[in-house]
């Protein structure tokens, strides 16, 4: 059971944070279809950063001294780097959508095509293959938090909570949850959040009250890009063993679905992300899920084809959208370039 929760969280957390990225863009009035592309870009940047620092060498010293504070600090730094470059990449979308009043769907699609192309072009030049990996070791041995770090013995039993949330987990999971909570509060409880949301509902009215719509939309898209870039790196670290392949398997689009299913509201999104994370987890690890801990792998014993579990998350997304689309309420002004003349 604790394995199932841990795995579900691993898939749910990037979904959640990237869905929130979508919320920030759409609540400011810009459809961010480029989440997938920004994730791919963020994953690449993060992995490249880890690789470079490993090659510089001083990183090995921290590992040898077992200085896990330095290692986790480095992980944090990588998340920040991925976020900054993700934000920079999203400026392309912001410029097209806000300054040039471009078609936001096509602009987003362009970024979705650009990210894997650029990333694969560079990966091939850097690594001479189609995958960029860490320079040494694997993600788990470098960054995973284990119970020995808290001074427990290797054979110590921590009980249900301890073994679920303190052993074999990544710091990124908790950072993302923290960021999610803080940003949700900012979106709903601060002046900035209110102004941002007003630009997605009625930008003309917002402008007439002295709010700079262009600035607010830039802020929305940039925050969105930062979160998506960070989410991309978190995804690569926790599910792809810190490797970048120019692909995040449609996670950015799943996050969009989570956002719509969550009705553009953070709390609903957290719930939706957990649900989709569960399905993704089943798809990835159905053969080794032991639900009640009696050593029987129920899902593997049913004998369904692996491809069935793999298509399940997407099928469920469609069905869920089909049932909830009537009650969903998107920000009113999303996708419409701001035109002062329509006031």
């Amino acid at each position: 059971m604790s394995f199932l929760i841990r795995q579900t969280l691993i898939y749910a957390v990037p979904l959640m944070i990237v869905a929130l990225a979508g919320v920030f863009a759409e609540r400011s009035g810009v459809i961010n279809l480029a989440l997938e592309g920004i994730m791919i870009f963020g994953a690449f940047v993060g992995v490249l950063f880890v690789r470079l620092v490993q090659q510089w060498g001083w990183f090995d010293v921290a590992k040898e001294m077992n200085n896990w504070v330095a290692l986790q600090g480095f992980l944090l730094l990588t998340m920040v780097v991925a976020a900054i470059l993700g934000a920079a990449f999203s400026l392309l979308l912001a410029f097209a959508a806000i300054n040039l009043k471009a078609d936001q769907t096509i602009g987003g699609t362009a970024l979705n095509l650009m990210a894997p192309a650029l990333v694969l072009f560079l990966i091939r030049l850097i690594a001479n293959q189609n995958t960029l990996q860490m320079a040494t070791g694997d993600a788990a041995s470098w960054f995973m938090i284990k119970k020995t770090m808290f001074g427990f013995d290797k054979k110590a039993k921590l009980g249900f909570f301890g073994s679920t949330f303190l052993d074999k987990v990544y710091l990124t999971t908790y950072i993302c949850i923290l960021v999610f909570i803080i940003l949700s509060i900012i979106l709903y409880k601060t002046r900035f959040g209110l102004r941002l949301r007003s630009c997605g509902e009625n930008p003309q009215a917002a402008d007439s009250l002295g709010i700079n719509v262009v600035k607010m939309r830039y802020a929305g898209v940039t925050i969105s890009g930062a979160l998506a870039g960070m989410g991309g790196f978190v995804y690569a670290l926790t599910t792809a063993n810190c490797a970048s392949t120019g692909d995040v398997a449609g996670f950015g689009f799943l996050a969009l679905a989570v956002m719509i299913f969550g009705n553009w509201k953070p709390l609903n999104i957290a719930g939706a992300a957990l649900l989709f994370g569960l399905f993704k987890c089943i798809a990835a690890a159905y053969a080794s899920i032991d639900i009640n801990g009696d050593g029987v792998f129920l899902l593997a014993n049913i004998g369904l084809n692996a491809n069935f579990y793999r298509l399940l998350p997407y099928l469920v997304t469609l069905l869920v959208l089909a049932f909830t689309s009537k009650s969903s309420r998107a920000p009113k002004a999303e996708g419409i370039p701001y035109d002062k003349g329509q006031r």
Binding site: L100, K101, A102, T109, A110, L113, M114, A117, F121
Partner: peptide
């Protein structure tokens, strides 16, 4: 060099066609 540069070119073209109206 490798063939992915053509995908980069294609994506730039798509990006530009997003604001071809401009």
């Amino acid at each position: 060099y490798n063939e992915y540069i053509t995908d980069v070119i294609i994506s730039v073209i798509v990006y530009l066609s997003a604001f071809s109206l401009v």
